[in-house]
Structure formats: C-alpha cells, structure tokens
Computed example of a mutant assay.
Amino acid sequence: MNRFLRTLGVLLLLAVCAPAFAAPGADVDLVKQRVAKVGVLRGEFNQDKQVAGFKNPLRSQGRFVLAQDRGVIWTTLKPFPSEVVVTRDRILSRQRDGSSRVELDGRQQPAMRSVNAIMFALMSGDAQALSAQFVVKVEALPDNGWRMQLTPRSAMLAKVFSALSLSGDRYVREVQITEANQDVTRIHFAALSETPAQLSADEGRRFE
C-alpha cells in the first residue's frame, strides 16, 4: 500500500478516536496570526519514514496541491509514481499510468470524512483544529516562525501516537509524526506557492 495511504490510515484512526474537545488559547492564536489563509497551495514534498529496527529510512518525494474547498492531491514521483487524492467523501489511490486504482468511499466509512479536516490541519497549520485531539504547545521563533508540539489528549490516541510536531512560518514547512511503536515520519514541504489562485482544468479533473 502507498506509504501516504498508510499515514492516512493512522490519521483515520485518530479521527475515530479523537475526543470532541477544543481549547484555543494565546498559543494557538499566535500560529493563526502567522500562517497564511489561502484557497490553493502548491508545493513539493520530501518524506522520510524511519522504521524502528531498520538503519535506512524509506524515502519518497513528489508534489502536492491543497485546495481548501476540494481536498488534497498528493503525487509521489519517486521511488514509484503514484497519486492519492483526498476529498470530503473519499480517498482515491492510483498509479500515474492508470494501471491500478483503489477507492475508499466515505459513504461506507463515515469516519473517513474526518480525515480531510485532519489533513488540512496538518498541512495548513490549523492549531485550533489540532487542539481538538492534542495538547498544543507553541514556541515562537524568529522571522515570524513557529513550532508546535502536539501531545495526544486520550489514552487511546497515545496507543497510536507518541507525539507530533509542526514547524513553519507563513506556511507549514515540516511535519513530524512519531508513532507509538517509535516509527518516525518526517515530511518537509518546499517550493510553496499560492499562485495561480485557482485550480487548473487538469487539477480539477483529478478531484473527480
């Protein structure tokens, strides 16, 4: 299974287990003030997954499109071309050459609908949304930078995650997910752009 789909599976479990509680405060407000609110954000990613007991990490890289009103297109270019599209109602995984396709329908798995919001929160630095599932601690950094440390609120979440952290400035630059088994995924975002502000015709079709 695509590594990104595995990460989504962990996030789906988070969505199912998360308590309906939010505690916005001064720290959360700092991040809200510094992170850009954009309709469409494009960029590149490098992802390393360090599996406990293995010397070398699993590496992948590619590009993404985050559209606030549609979802996320996550296109892996290396080591194997593939694409995952996350919308409000489904997760679609496919090979770029069209040779295979896996679709998970949110109408059959209602909890999946929460994955969209969690993905947006991680990629857009939505501290208030993340505070529904985690205790959030924020550190202000120079040049309008920030770092968030996230600790699971519930014992059930703690069985999945040890900790999460995000850092950035106007945008989220890095996400680190430490699972309870000590596997660590680091995602670094680069070449981020808010333009063009609308999806292209091709990007729009890929959400369909």
Rank of each mutant, 00 (worst) to 15 (best):
E83G: 00
A36Y: 12
N181W: 05
T87C: 06
R107E: 13
V40I: 14
E103Y: 06
F134Q: 04
D126N: 04
Q50S: 15
E83N: 02
Q133W: 05
E194R: 11
L150Y: 12
L30N: 09
F54M: 06
A67N: 03
E83R: 09
E194W: 04
S114I: 02
L157G: 12
M148L: 09
V115K: 14
R42V: 02
A26K: 15
A18L: 15
R59I: 00
Q95L: 04
L150P: 02
I91Q: 05
N56W: 08
A23S: 12
A158P: 04
T151D: 08
R34A: 12
K137T: 09
F21P: 01
E203K: 01
F161C: 07
L141I: 07
V136Q: 07
R6P: 02
D183W: 08
Q149S: 13
G39F: 04
P79W: 13
K55T: 07
V28S: 05
R94C: 04
R173C: 04
S82M: 01
V35N: 06
H188I: 10
V184Y: 06
V35K: 00
R206I: 02
E179S: 08
K49M: 10
M156K: 13
L30H: 11
V84Q: 01
R70Q: 11
L12P: 02
V172R: 02
Q95A: 11
N2D: 12
T195S: 09
Q182L: 08
G62W: 03
Q95G: 06
V184H: 08
V175C: 07
K49G: 03
W74T: 01
Q176D: 09
P79C: 08
M156V: 15
S99F: 10
G53N: 08
V160I: 15
G43T: 08
L66D: 04
F80Q: 14
S193W: 00
A191F: 01
L122A: 06
F21Q: 11
G98I: 08
V184G: 06
P57S: 12
P81S: 13
A197P: 05
Q68W: 03
G168E: 05
D126M: 00
R113Y: 07
F207L: 08
G9W: 02
Q50T: 04
C17Y: 10
P196Y: 05
A20Y: 04
Q149G: 11
T75P: 00
G98Y: 06
A201Q: 14
W74Q: 03
G53Q: 10
R94Y: 02
L164G: 06
R34G: 03
V38C: 13
M119L: 15
A26Q: 14
R42K: 12
M156W: 05
